[in-house]
């Protein structure tokens, strides 16, 4: 018998990291300076590594012979369960930084809590990932302040990027049946309980960046049940192209 809730929980963990890692890898060779290029791809590499572990675990739990690659390359959008925030397009650097800022601060809180999971595998993965994500938070927070404080143009671009991504923040804190069961079994994280700490963290940075705290946006949800933005299908069609074009080949 597959432990369905646990399977989905591991899948979501992997999908968040995979999709954001894929997005960041699009920057490779195109950033504003070599140092920024290196940082963005470094974060991308961490996330792809995290996705490989989490999806591998999901595949083991499923027991249907799908490994991490099977899950990454052979699911369509309806079966992807990442949050909507991570699939948002890179836009300009301001939009990329705003997305990273909003996600990494949540990711860090989520993983810190997950490190106490009763599921030993998830706990170990979370403990390892949270160290990497500390750096992602530092990078994103620093750039928020630089861009917010820098020039009128950078301030304006960052505001627009924040505005674009802010719509998808509510979803990060909304639990569903899977979350509820995982919390009850001492495996998962009560997402709503992270909200106060999250707000405190981001308000601090927004203040330093001279940016107003955006007004609460009506929750746009759907990622966790496979209802995504229009962007995800394009991301997948690119990412999955070789696996789809040459079924059964190994690479």
């Amino acid at each position: 018998m597959i432990d369905q809730p646990l399977f989905h929980y591991a899948l979501r963990l992997g999908d968040d990291s995979l999709i954001l890692g894929q997005r960041l890898s699009e920057w490779c060779g195109h950033a504003a300076a070599l140092e920024v290029d290196l940082s963005l791809t470094n974060i991308g590499l961490d996330l792809i590594g995290q996705a490989t572990s989490a999806l591998g675990y999901a595949g083991d739990l499923e027991g249907a012979g799908r490994d991490a690659d099977g899950l990454a390359f052979h699911r369509d959008a309806l079966d992807y369960e990442n949050c909507l925030l991570v699939e948002q397009p890179n836009g300009d650097f301001g939009q990329t930084i705003a997305r990273q800022f909003l996600f990494s601060n949540w990711h860090w809180l989520f993983l810190s809590a997950l490190a106490a999971s009763k599921d030993a595998t998830l706990a170990a993965m979370a403990a390892k990932s949270v160290k990497e994500v500390s750096y992602h938070v530092e990078f994103a927070n620093d750039w928020m302040v630089r861009l917010g404080d820098g020039t009128p143009e950078s301030h304006q671009r960052l505001s627009a990027g924040l505005d674009w991504n802010w719509r998808f923040v509510e979803e990060l804190f909304i639990g569903d049946d899977v979350d509820n069961e995982m919390v009850q079994r001492g495996i998962g994280v009560d997402k709503a309980s992270l909200r106060a700490a999250y707000d405190a963290r981001i308000i601090d940075v927004l203040n330093d960046a001279n940016l107003p705290v955006p007004k609460k946006h009506r929750a746009i949800t759907g990622g966790r049940r496979g209802h995504h933005s229009e962007h995800l299908g394009h991301l997948l069609s690119q990412m999955q192209f070789l696996q789809r074009a040459y079924p059964g080949a190994s690479w």
Binding site: G29, H30, A31, A32, A33, V36, D92, F93, V145, R146, L147, D149, G150, T151, E153, S154, R157
Partner: peptide, 15 residues
């Protein structure tokens, strides 16, 4: 990449 990044480099320097 260089031209698109100009505002980013300027912002970092100004900050």
């Amino acid at each position: 990449a260089w031209e698109d990044g100009a505002w980013v480099r300027e912002a970092a320097a100004a900050h």
